[in-house]
Design a binder for these strands. Structure first.
Lengths: 160, 160
DNA sequence: GGTCATTTAGTTGTGCACAATTAAATCGTG
DNA sequence: CACGATTTAATTGTGCACAACTAAATGACC
């Protein structure tokens, strides 16, 4: 065995760099989540529930499948989440008449009305980031690029 | 003032912008997680477990409290996670003799040995991002700045 | 028309994040 | 020393993410 040298090996350096990167993203995601938690508490929504409502407000009624495509979430995540939104009276779920495999998610009147109260959320979030709109746009572009590359890499690794 | 036009109101535009930002970060975080899941499967670690191991490899044995400070995680998350690492034979938990409130987390020989096999992980992760080291460093800096501002905002909002 | 593959939701089980609470040990102060 | 405040883990409960599986409906092909 070699004695432990004060100067770390190049690979050990990589381990540290790795920790810094993955940790930074992990931390940023949780920090965002935490801010949303505080701001959304008044609306009675969690962050993922808010994402679902945003899609419905923007796109109108959708089957669970389409909702999952927009959010990249599967039924294992959406089914219980939608049940909670239904229990809260914000959405209604109904088997499609045309295709009974499909379940249509519709906003209730209460769910549609909640949009008014949600209008102030984005301003508060953007304000909390301390970034201006251009910086946010730039960061978003990089993150999207990163996600695209990572998704491709994940499916390649998966086929090994 | 203008009547409601087919062009969405400024606030509705913000709702969409907001969805794009928060969603991008959320998606990037999950995409990263997904790549780590594939790469770490061989080591029998999840992504948060890997983070814990990285800290232990870098810092040596630590009490749960210190571990939580490094990772910004509380005992509600760490306790069950550490139990699983202990069940896998990678760490050992022991009440400190000096202060019996504290639990010392120590790497087992097996846990320390796992570092060797983990050395190749960072290279594969960095490769999967498609970014070079400078781009990663830049992204990390932005994310850290974002996290810092968000954390401050969360505690301010919390005191309202 | 009958059979098989596909599509779509839902269920189950595992693991993480976090708030709230509990319990035990320690520390500070009189 | 005694008492109250603080520190530290653990536990409990809720919710999200995802893999693996089930079930039901649909569609395609012979």
């Amino acid at each position: 065995m070699t004695a432990t040298t004060p100067t770390p090996s190049p690979e050990a350096e990589w381990l540290r760099l790795d920790r810094q990167i993955c940790f930074s993203l992990h931390a940023a995601s949780r920090a965002f989540n935490s801010v949303y938690r505080v701001i959304l508490k008044d609306l009675g929504l969690t962050y993922p529930q808010y994402l679902v409502m945003l899609v419905l407000w923007e796109q109108g009624d959708l089957p669970v499948k389409k909702l999952g495509e927009h959010l990249r979430l599967d039924s294992g995540t959406l089914s219980p989440l939608l049940k909670r939104l239904e229990a809260a009276g914000l959405v209604h779920r109904e088997r499609s008449a045309r295709d009974e495999r499909s379940v249509e998610v519709r906003l209730t009147q209460q769910g549609a009305a909640l949009k008014e109260r949600a209008l102030e959320v984005p301003r508060r979030i953007v304000s909390a980031t301390g970034f201006d709109v251009d910086e946010i746009r730039d960061l978003k572009a990089r993150l999207d690029q990163l996600t695209g590359t990572l998704d491709a890499a994940a499916s390649e690794e998966g086929t090994n």
